[in-house]
Every structure is written in C-alpha cells, then in structure tokens.
Design a protein around this nucleic acid. Structure first.
Length: 155
DNA sequence: GCCAACGTTGGC
DNA sequence: GCCAACGTTGGC
C-alpha cells in the first residue's frame, strides 16, 4: 500500500515542531477522541508523512513535517493516574486509547497562517478548513500534502 | 477572553 | 433512546 498523508495538531505551547526537532522522536499521546484514535490505531503506518500543525497559536497553521516512526501502540498515559490524560475506565487488558511515535522531518521557515490556506483552491476541500471541525488528527490527500509543502518552501 | 461548534454524559 | 447540560477545542 502506498503512503498515506496526515495532519496532526499540537499546541506549540505544549509541544511544537521545534520541540520535535530537538527530541527527534516523540510519542503522540493524549488523544482522547474516538475518530482520531481510529486514525492513530488503524490508519497510520510507519513511513507515512504528516503535516505538523500548530493550533491555538500565533499564527495557527502548518509548521513542519513529521513521519510516522513505528506501529501504533496503547497510550500509556491512559493508565497513569498522575497524567492529565488518565482514563480510569480504560481497561489495560483492552486498551481504549492508542498512539503512534513520530519523528522529525522538517520545520518550515515560517508557519503558514491558516487564513492563507483558505485562498488556495486546491485546498478548499480539506477537512481542516471545514467550519467547526475539531479533529486533532486527520487524513489529507497526497496533493494537499504536496501543495502545503510547496507553499512552505516558497515562503 | 470570547464564543461557536462539537462530543460526551447522565437523567428520565 | 432522547436531549439538555456540560466540557473541550480552537479560531479570532
């Protein structure tokens, strides 16, 4: 199967593309939405590429590229009572929440502002740009991925 | 900080 | 199973 492309949101005040660059690799933990969980658990495959998106930021928008670095695995923070993402009702023998590990690929020279993406006709159908969508992890097409990458390289 | 949009929870 | 109340996301 050919590579899939994704968009993954993170608040840079919590974990930014620069943080990933420094750490090289990180577990994408704490996702507590079932649709996003399904993408992490069943959709993402090692080698897939993802746009690293800064949310709740100034500006919000695509900030770089990362790569899925390993197979999905249960999210250990769900079983850690000290974690903000602890889920007391998740049974360790039947994990409810999953994560993937991601590795740094590149950081854009500047974040592409979300508003600037709205001017690009080829991106008009992106889930990201739909009103009210709040998914933190979502698939994108190869074309959308390339278009965003090209925009970033030109800016 | 505001608030629209959405997901989840829980009473009935 | 309905749906109101509540909590969260995330742009602005």
């Amino acid at each position: 199967m050919t590579a899939q492309y994704w968009l993954m949101k993170s608040e840079p005040s919590v974990f930014s593309i620069q943080d990933l660059k420094r750490k090289k690799r990180e577990a994408w933990d704490g996702v507590r939405n079932y649709q996003a969980r399904n993408y992490l658990k069943d959709g993402m495959k090692p080698g897939d590429l993802a746009i690293f998106y800064h949310s709740n930021a100034e500006p919000s928008g695509p900030a770089g590229i990362c790569r899925i670095a390993g197979p999905s695995r249960p999210d250990p923070t769900a079983f850690d009572p000290k974690s903000d993402h602890f889920d007391a009702s998740s049974d360790p023998s039947k994990p409810r929440w999953w994560l993937v590990d991601v590795e740094f690929v590149s950081a854009f020279s500047q974040v592409l502002p979300l508003a600037s993406l709205r001017d690009i006709p080829e991106l008009a159908d992106m889930t990201l740009l739909r009103k009210g969508q709040r998914l933190s992890v979502m698939p994108i097409t190869a074309k959308e991925f390339q278009r965003i990458k090209n925009l970033a390289e030109k800016s």
